[in-house]
Simulated scan of single mutants.
Amino acid sequence: MGKRPLVRRRGRGGSQFRAATTGKIARAGYPNFPLAGSHTALVLDIVHERGRDAPLAKIRFKDGSVSFVPAVLGLQVGDSMQFGLKSSIERGNVISVQNIPDGATVCNVERHYGDGGTLVKAAGGSATIFSHGENGVTVKLPSGQFATLHPRNRAMIGTLAGGGVSERPFMSAGGKWRNFRSRGRKYPIVRGVAQAAYAHPHGGGRHQHVGQSSTVSRDAPPGAKVGSIAARKTGRARLKKRN
C-alpha cells in the first residue's frame, strides 16, 4: 500500500500543516469609528506578533479603549496618531483616501470600508495614491497593479516598518524551520524523485528520474496529481525568428 503524497496531505489540512494560533496578540486593524469623527490615540508600545514581520503598535484612545495597528517606519512610543477626515497628512495618521493627495505614500489600506485594512500589510510595504476620479481613488500597489477603491476607505500615511527582514539570511536550518512553521508553511520540501516509489509517483528507480510524463490532467486522482498540473506548454521558451 502506497503513502499519500505530501501535496495531498497538505490539501487535507491537518494540524501539522496549519499555522499555529499561539503567540497571536489581537486583530491588527482600525477600530470602527464614525467617519466624520476625530479621534486621537497614544502609542503605548511597539510589540512583535508571531508569524508577522511588521511590528504592531499598541495604541490607547481617550476613552480608554486599546487597539493594535501595524506600525509605520519611524513611529515611536509616546507619539500620537490621529483618526478622522480632518487628520493632517503626517506619518502614522489614518485618513480616508479621498482626503489624501496624489503621490502620497500609504499602507494598511482598506479594500472595503470598515474591514480595518487588508491591503499593503507586509513589512516594508507601501502604496501610492495615484489619482482621484469619479469612479473612486486609484492606488498603485507594491506589485505594480492598480486598484480603484471607494473614497471612504481608510489608509495610514507612511511606509510599514520592518523592511528588509526577508533579506536577512537564516543562520541555521532550525531557524528557517521555525520561521516557516509559524506561517503554516512546509520546510524542508523533498523532491519527488528523491523519495521512494511508495511515497511519491516520481520516486524509485536505479537513479533519480521521473520516468513518466510530468504533466497530469486537471481531473487526475489526488494520489497522482503531482508535477505540472494541466500545463498548457512545457520546456524552455523559444524565441521566434524575425523576418
Rank of each mutant, 00 (worst) to 15 (best):
T105R: 10
V106M: 02
N108D: 14
N108C: 15
V109I: 15
V109C: 12
E110P: 06
E110C: 07
E110K: 08
R111C: 05
R111H: 11
Y113F: 15
G114A: 12
G114Q: 10
D115E: 10
D115L: 07
G116V: 00
G116S: 03
G116C: 01
G117A: 04
T118W: 04
T118D: 12
V120T: 04
K121F: 11
K121V: 14
K121C: 13
A122G: 11
A122L: 10
A123D: 00
S126H: 09
S126Y: 08
S126R: 05
S126P: 02
T128R: 11
I129F: 02
I129D: 04
I129L: 07
S131A: 12
G133M: 07
G133R: 01
N135F: 08
T138P: 00
L141K: 05
S143G: 13
G144K: 02
G144A: 06
Q145E: 15
Q145R: 12
F146Y: 13
F146R: 12
F146K: 09
F146T: 04
T148H: 02
L149M: 02
L149Y: 03
L149H: 06
P151L: 09
P151S: 09
R152N: 14
R152W: 15
N153F: 00
R154L: 13
R154G: 01
A155E: 03
M156C: 06
G158Q: 10
L160Q: 06
A161G: 09
A161S: 09
G162P: 01
G162L: 05
G162R: 03
G163E: 01
G164Y: 01
S166F: 14
S166Y: 14
S166Q: 15
E167Y: 09
E167S: 15
E167H: 10
F170R: 05
A173Y: 10
G174W: 13
G174V: 14
G174L: 13
G175I: 05
G175C: 08
K176W: 08
K176Q: 12
K176D: 08
W177L: 10
W177Q: 11
R178M: 12
R178H: 11
F180W: 13
F180D: 14
F180L: 14
S182T: 12
R183Y: 10
R183D: 11
R183H: 09
R183E: 12
G184L: 02
G184M: 02
R185Y: 13
R185A: 14
P188G: 09
I189N: 12
I189K: 11
V190E: 10
R191H: 11
R191I: 04
V193M: 06
V193R: 08
